[in-house]
Each structure stands twice: as structure tokens, then as C-alpha cells.
Simulated scan of single mutants.
Amino acid sequence: MIQMKISEDAIIPIDYDSNELSDFVKELRPVVYMKGESFCCLLGPNQQEGIFGCGDSSDEAIQDWENTLKKRLEKAKDDDEIANYVKDSLNASNRKVW
């Protein structure tokens, strides 16, 4: 899976080992970054094809991303490369969470 290139200046550091984060975020490690005044969270090549969330804070962006992820997994077709990557990653870590 290709991850969108994001300027290092825009990336918000996240402690992916934090107990405050869900298993989704810990395992998949989406990128959290600033775009204008908004916080964004993305896993994938771009906002349209990937799994994307946004909000007024990094926590809101991550929560929106998780909601989008869950909906994407529920509706995923067999040829959905990003959803298949997510399922494979979670299965490999024994975290079947959908």
C-alpha cells in the first residue's frame, strides 16, 4: 500500500504506543498532519482513495478516521486495496476488530 507523501513540517508527532490510542491506530499508524487550520488523519495514497478523517484537534481527526475506517471495512469489496491491507495487517497482529 502506498502512503501519501506529507511534508515533515505538517506532520503531528503521535505516540503510537500510548494506551490512550485504539488498537486500530496502534497497529495501522495513520499519519496525523495539519492542513490549513484542520488536523487530518490518513492511511493511504490520498484523501479520496485512502482512509481519511479530520477535526479541530488531533484527537478529533483520529476519532473521525476510526469512524471512517469502520464504515469502510463494513462496506469493503474484494478489490478494495486499502481495506484488504487493513484486514491483513490486523489479522497478522491477531487484532481482528471489525
Rank of each mutant, 00 (worst) to 15 (best):
W98I: 05
D9F: 12
Y85L: 10
D64L: 13
R72G: 02
Y33E: 03
K75E: 04
E81V: 11
G53Y: 00
N84G: 02
I82D: 02
D59E: 15
I11Y: 06
K87S: 05
P30A: 01
S22K: 10
G36Y: 04
V86H: 01
A61H: 04
E60W: 13
E8N: 11
I82Y: 03
S18M: 11
I62G: 00
V25F: 05
R95I: 10
Y16C: 13
R29F: 04
A83K: 03
P30L: 01
G44N: 02
E66A: 08
D9I: 11
M34C: 10
N46Y: 07
G55H: 05
D15R: 08
S58A: 12
A76P: 02
L43S: 01
C54P: 04
E60N: 14
L42F: 04
E27G: 11
E60C: 12
K96V: 14
F39E: 01
I11L: 10
A92M: 14
V97Q: 07
M1W: 05
K75M: 12
S7P: 08
V32A: 01
E60L: 14
Q3K: 08
V86E: 00
E20P: 10
C41D: 00
V31R: 00
Y16H: 09
M1P: 07
D17G: 15
L28Q: 00
L73F: 07
C54M: 13
C54N: 12
Q48E: 14
D9T: 10
N94A: 15
K35V: 13
E8C: 06
Q48C: 09
Y85V: 03
I2A: 06
D88T: 13
N67K: 14
L43G: 00
A61Y: 04
E81W: 08
V25C: 04
K5G: 05
K5F: 02
K77P: 06
P45Y: 03
Q63T: 15
K26A: 09
V32M: 03
K5Y: 02
Q63W: 08
I14E: 02
Q47D: 04
I14M: 02
K26D: 05
N91L: 15
F52L: 05
I12E: 04
W98K: 06
C54Y: 09
S22R: 04
R95K: 15
V32Y: 00
D56L: 08
K70R: 09
F52H: 03
E74L: 14
E27R: 15
L42E: 01
S58K: 11
D17C: 14
G44K: 01
D23E: 13
V86N: 00
E27T: 15
Q3N: 12
M4H: 07
V25P: 01
Y85E: 02
K77I: 13
D9A: 10
I12S: 04
K71H: 06
L21D: 07
Q3P: 03
K96Y: 13
D17Y: 10
G50C: 02
L69R: 02
L28N: 00
E49W: 06
F39A: 08
G55A: 10
K5A: 05
N91M: 14
G36M: 10
S38W: 14
D78I: 13
L42V: 08
D23A: 13
K75A: 12
L69D: 01
P13Q: 12
K87L: 05
K96H: 15
I11T: 07
